[in-house]
Nucleic acid binder design. Structure first.
Lengths: 195, 195
DNA sequence: GTCAAAATGTTTCCACTGTAAACTTTATAG
DNA sequence: CTATAAAGTTTACAGTGGAAACATTTTGAC
């Protein structure tokens, strides 16, 4: 029902997102254009409008797939090393690894003006990523263990630290020599866990 | 020597950067174009080429001015509250405040592909910002006080945490309810200081 | 089955963008 | 005073996203 190859593509929507992800890897954000996605899919440059409305819609769908992949990267690490003493380590490493491996996609995902940042699907998938980080930081305490919102504070610190390290790494702002032997796990604070 | 207003502008280079900063505040990164900067400055759209070469050159100059302003914001807080017990607090607040107040400029500053990220002037001014963060974190210790690179680890954590919080705040990813009553100082870890 | 209607793609056109080339005007150095 | 460099303009061009009118296919109601 999908491979007639005549007039209708079959599942153009998914194919366009795939093309966008490929272009992002090959040419970065600068090379990602609506027309390039359409051409790579073998379709006219106005065809995407039927599925995504406009460029922002397409970029939003690409970013959403990015969050999907980010969640998978983190989850895969968690599954592969479920007995790790600090559960968060696998998720942290996955987060940073994703940012460094796919810098253009990572930038798009956290770019406010390019995407429809209130898109329900985007919010849902992004929420799943942050839920993973929230889960692995559950039970994390800090010196404000008895302060109100202690858990929320720990989660925000958790996320801010890993996201900052990931973005600085991906944008090349961190000293190369430092990067060589210091990773996120080397600077991540030794939280205490509740029993 | 600058206000003849005939053929030569006088100091077009600075005026174009000023225009770019204004557009960034009013219309965001999407509205920032070479032609818009030129028009606002009252000059033909190819005039910038003489001073910046191409679009990347102009964006690089704008980003550089952004780092200048970021350093000023942090330094101003430090000067205004020199007796603060934790020197770093003023710098941290300045960093986050800058990101939230100028989200478009902040995104441009940390965007790798838009600017000439190896421009000497850009590197110099960016370095001054990170030097401020490095200075206020001097003497910061952590539980790996006796580990090698202890100071470097503390600095990287310091910077990653504040940058992550700033970027997540600016890109609207942090829960609005959380933002209402929790700021960077609420989640910033209580480092110990050496005597 | 038939056929109107909706979905999906195409063609054509337009305004806008950055860049290059040739040209004009002003400032400056010798 | 004048050759030359610096600073701006005009013109042209390829690429971008979007709108409108059109063509083709699928689907749903009868």
């Amino acid at each position: 029902m999908a491979n007639k190859r005549k007039y209708h593509h079959g599942n153009l929507k998914q194919a366009l997102v795939d093309a966008g992800l490929e272009i992002l890897e090959e040419a970065g954000l600068a090379g990602l254009s609506l027309r390039a996605c359409a051409e790579r899919t073998g379709v006219s440059h106005t065809a995407p409008k039927n599925h995504f409305g406009n460029m922002s819609g397409l970029l939003t769908a690409i970013a959403a797939r990015g969050y999907q992949q980010l969640a998978q990267t983190m989850q895969k690490g968690l599954d592969a090393d479920a007995t790790r003493s600090r559960k968060s380590d696998a998720a942290l490493q996955g987060y940073v690894e994703f940012a460094v491996t796919h810098p253009a996609l990572f930038e798009l995902m956290f770019s406010r003006h390019r995407t429809n940042s209130d898109d329900p699907n985007l919010l849902e998938l992004a929420g799943q990523c942050f839920a993973i980080l929230r889960d692995v930081s559950e039970g994390l305490v800090w010196e404000w263990s008895d302060a109100p919102d202690a858990a929320l504070r720990a989660q925000m610190m958790h996320w801010s630290l890993v996201h900052g390290f990931a973005q600085l790494s991906a944008s090349g702002k961190l000293n190369k020599d430092s990067m060589k032997h210091l990773g996120i796990l080397d600077i991540f604070p030794q939280f205490e866990y509740r029993a």
